[in-house]
Amino acid sequence: MKILVCISKTPDTTSKIAFKNGNTQFEDAGVQWIINPYDEWYALIRAIELKEKNPTATIHLISVGGADVDPILRKAFALGGDEGYRVDTDNSDSYYIASQIAAIATQNQYDLIFTGKETIDYNGSSIGGTLAELLNLPFISLATKFELEGQTATVTREIDGGEEVATVQLPLVVSCAKGVAEQRIPNMRGIMAARTKPLKVVAPVAVEALTSVVNYELRPTKTGVKMVAADNVAELVRLLHEEAKVI
């Protein structure tokens, strides 16, 4: 069985969000980079668990991005995974990125492709679906549990107001949310092994990007909190009713 895990590099969750060059680029000075938590905690770890049950399985990692992504792929390798691809491009349109992953997936014919449910920077939630469409595969989005029995996957997924259990045959694309696996810490052996795992840098295939970011804006900060005394809860209710008009 061949599993592909899509990995994205994102700023650490505590990063200060700021922009530069006329608000056209993310200000990355001083930013710590991490594996997108959904890709790491859920997608990658579940793939590793599947391989632990079925040691003949192979796990490939893929990331689309510049050389600055390599350390992130190495971090992912420290947790697990056998081989990696980096498609060398800076373009960030979701169709463009999914097309790059689709090109590698078409070469290698994976049984299972995992993505995180979204990245914590762009919040697109779009790579998995786009990729599934390009490969003409079934797509389960927002999976919270993933079990495999032979070629049949049993997946629990979020739906509005609850969850749904479904079965589907491989090959398949799944976007992973909380619940699919538990976070792990890499061990020393993993960290050592990560250095020598094969990481192929490949040139992008020619595809047109369909969108581009013009600029960014910060969310305006709250103008200041109105404090209400602890012995005057009725005043809070009045403010919410008459001033904010939310109750």
Partner: peptide
């Protein structure tokens, strides 16, 4: 809508129509 259904379906529709997609 960028809800559970939209997250599953919209990116696929965009890819099928070769349409630029903005979510969120």
């Amino acid at each position: 809508s960028h809800n559970q259904t939209g997250k599953a379906v919209a990116p696929r529709v965009a890819a099928r129509l070769k349409a630029g997609y903005v979510s969120g």
